[in-house]
Design a protein around this nucleic acid. Structure first.
Lengths: 354, 354
DNA sequence: AGCATCACTGAAACCGGTTGCAGAAAGCCG
DNA sequence: CGGCTTTCTGCAACCGGTTTCAGTGATGCT
């Protein structure tokens, strides 16, 4: 008994396959229950074609009865898409990113996509790793939320998968970059302080060369220039976008005996740190020093005192990014506009009193 | 020209299929390049069997040359697993969850899994939706980070997929629950206040019936009892785990002229709100009122004044949850222990001065 | 009535991997 | 030197959907 040519009559070999305790309902089972073929069931589910009402209700009943949910992997394989969007941010733990991620999640979900979040931890290498991993997993697009991957690499990736990036000015196919109007926001913040009579205004910036930080610095300088106040480099201190940077900046200013009556911080977290350092130094906010932040994190409302800040609604930026991605995938050239930045005046700023 | 029986000779129909611009390298291409079959290539990649060094290097070279990455959907379909763990939390935007999620992400990644995050927004219905969605997507396990899905439903889900839950005491197959020692933490916080001489200590709790809140309330009462101080229900105010709840609690206490010299808040965010309300009422922290929080969020270090809090390292809880999940998947009965809670004394508490 | 059109439906070929089975080649034995 | 393991390798059958193509009745048009 030898079958010298196995192909002549394909015998249903059917050994029991591997780990098959898939406790799941398959399309075939639903189809059989409804008395139709799998193809028809599939078409009904996806509304690909019209089918008679009779069959439709039968299939729908079967689906409900078994609580059928199509297997995402199979569908992804067949369709060549996963209905998943990769999202790379820097750190989930930060309230800033949390906000943005939430916006992305919300909007994506409306569009039938789910986000797959990964964190780059402020390291380009890690971001690259995330990129690769996400592409492996076959995501249908990638949103880079304030990433630092260099432009060239990004363009290269954009040829494999649609990409949306925040905080860049870069054009390419399958590629959208969203620019928050950092410069304008900074100008508005400065104008507020200037209006209150401040003239010696310190600026705590972020990492060297970070686009957001640079733009905000430009806004700072623009506002000074417009008010006819000379730019004093001593008043600009490098920070790290975190509380620690804000604290160090204050210590540095005060230890150097550099006079100032107000501070503009590159983001709210930096402002928090500055507040604490001033408190340590026995200075009061806003009586002695006025402080303005940027981002208007939710917790800024509840600081003591509540922080004046430039609101850019990170959540809305996230939503816009998601929106852009959805349009990109749909093949349209996205036309999304970020909400305008606006100053939220609270209690960390007051008229200069001396 | 009619072929009445199409099956007799299966003709390679091969119409051009749908959207096939898969710009990806397939296993088959790699195999051909290396001069082996797809099966062998697969086995080499997965180290399923030993193969001659010659072939191994050939295949590895081909992989490198094409930068081949196996298609995750196909692999998932064949294997019945996705190397993805679903994670349901309540809100990404909150620093609390951000911390925990970060811990989960870190640990999972070490184990070769990636997290798929979804938010329930404190609504059981949404959590259920997430559950379903995650199961659809074929995740290999689900971590419910402080969820409110009822125990019965949870047990039912656990029959379809391994589940790890925080903040419950529930046993089942394929199911682990992690309990933070809330009660002990609350006791420690209270003992600190009592040691400082406080006797009228308010407690701002969370949502009604939330397990964490209840446990902490018990700790509060235990500590009072141990100190021989009668429990005064007037001093316990319901909150919402957020700043707003803390503010309202303070207003309520003060408007009712209920005397108190210290507050213990169910979590840090509540404490933040309380601080602000006290500030509004012209009370100083800690000179007039001492405040203790719970969770020790990163930003508590930078509050003005820095907040005394019970540290439970949410990030470590996240890591433990991930660890438990990995073990569960590996078929072991996980034996993970959460780090002990500890009090971090900062500047929001001081000896009573009256 | 005769033939083209149309609306539905099912069989089978994919998607891109994994893996049971068997055949081939090499090694070992009596 | 033939028979029997042992080690590798390839064929083809899956995984669970989607979609092309062909086939069946029913209908429309001349």
């Amino acid at each position: 008994m030898k079958k010298h040519k196995a192909k002549s009559v394909p015998p249903p070999v059917r050994g029991k396959r591997g780990p098959r305790p898939r406790n799941s309902v398959t399309l075939k089972m639903v189809a059989r229950e409804a008395g139709v073929s799998a193809s028809t069931a599939s078409r009904i589910i996806n509304r690909t074609v019209n089918v008679s009402d009779e069959l439709r209700t039968a299939v729908e009943a079967a689906i409900a009865k078994f609580n059928f949910r199509p297997n995402a992997a199979a569908r992804g394989l067949a369709l060549g898409k996963t209905s998943t969007i990769g999202v790379i941010s820097q750190a989930m733990a930060s309230p800033f990113y949390g906000q943005g991620l939430r916006g992305i999640e919300t909007r994506l979900q409306q569009g039938g996509y789910a986000p797959l979040f990964m964190s780059g931890n402020w390291q380009e290498k890690e971001e690259i790793r995330c990129m690769e991993e996400l592409i492996n997993r076959g995501v249908d697009g990638i949103i880079l939320f304030t990433g630092s991957i260099n432009d060239a690499a990004l363009k290269a990736y954009a040829r494999k998968v649609p990409i949306v990036v925040t905080g860049r000015a870069l054009r390419a196919k399958q590629f959208i970059s969203l620019q928050v109007d950092d410069r304008h926001g900074a100008t508005v913040a400065m104008r507020h302080l200037l209006d209150l009579g401040h003239r010696r205004i310190a600026f705590v910036t972020g990492f060297e060369n970070h686009p957001d930080a640079n733009e905000r610095l430009i806004g700072y300088r623009d506002a000074l220039a417009a008010a006819g106040i000379p730019y004093d480099p001593q008043l600009v201190i490098a920070g790290d976008f975190h509380e620690e940077g804000g604290m160090q900046a204050v210590y540095q200013l005060m230890d150097s005996n550099i006079a100032f009556t107000a501070m503009f911080c590159v983001n709210d977290e930096t402002a928090y740190g500055a507040c604490l350092a001033l408190f340590r130094k026995g200075m009061r906010v806003p009586e002695d020093i006025s402080i303005v932040g940027f981002d208007d994190l939710p917790s800024s409302t509840y600081r003591v005192p509540p922080l004046t800040s430039v609101r850019q609604s990170v959540q809305q930026v996230g939503e816009c990014a998601a929106e852009a991605m959805l349009q990109l995938i749909a093949g349209r050239r996205p036309q999304v506009t970020l909400p305008a930045v606006e100053l939220v005046v609270r209690e960390s700023t007051s008229r200069i009193n001396r």
